[in-house]
Amino acid sequence: MPAPATLQRLRDQLAALAPRGCVDVEDGFRLGMAPADLGVGPLARKGLHEVFAASSAQAVSANGFGLSLALRAAPPPLVWVLEDRALSEVGAPYGAGLHEWGLEPSDLVLVRVRSAQALLAAGEEALKSGAVGAVLMSGWGEGRAWSLTAGRRLALAAEAGAATALLIRSGAKPRPSAADTRWSVEAAPSAALEARAPGRPAFRAVLLRSRKGPAGGEWIMEWDREARSFVEPAAASGRVVPVSGDRQAGVRAA
């Protein structure tokens, strides 16, 4: 691992190289894990980020990844809107688990909605209110509601309310939208503790698209709740598969 000073110099270089019109670092947040941050750059704080579960069985990992992004992105409070279908498939958010994830459950407002339309409407309302730091929206499946316009509206609402929009979708294929970044996430085997106990939560996250940089990049990330940060797994280096930068968004559709 390079020394912090080297890292900072690299970051500055990267910021200088970044295309014009992209958000500057003050208005962005980092993942906290050097290899991924170098690959992705700062993520827009007042923007829309999409997290796709690599398969519908990975919905809880996508939720966990989205929640971690929300914790990185903005101070509480947090609004989490869930479609009823998503609740019945992977269970309801659980207070003790949220607390152990690094969130104060009292900072969270849960909203249950029946349909994708209601999900998008409630999410937009919460984003625009200016009262929350981030809004998570967990949707399930495909449908006409998931249009280009819907994504654009969320992005505008995030900008207007200075909040981070995190759209988490399970049972759906990634497709072009107005999102600043789009991720595909699945669970990765954890670094075992003593006696083969499962270790810290680990994700395999693939960057499918980034508005201000080349897409592509795949990392194994662990979530460190004390530091509220993504970290590299202790054993291996973060980047497991070198991926060429010219890969098209959406190719790795689940």
Binding site: V60, N63, G64, L67, V90, G91, A92, P93, Y94, G95, A96, G97, L98, H99, E100, W101, P105, S190, L193, P198, G199, R200, P201, R225, E226
Partner: peptide
Amino acid sequence: AWPEREPEQPPLRPLQLFD
């Protein structure tokens, strides 16, 4: 109150619960 987080431990309770 919520149970204390145990330092250096992964979450011991699930993020989502079936009921």
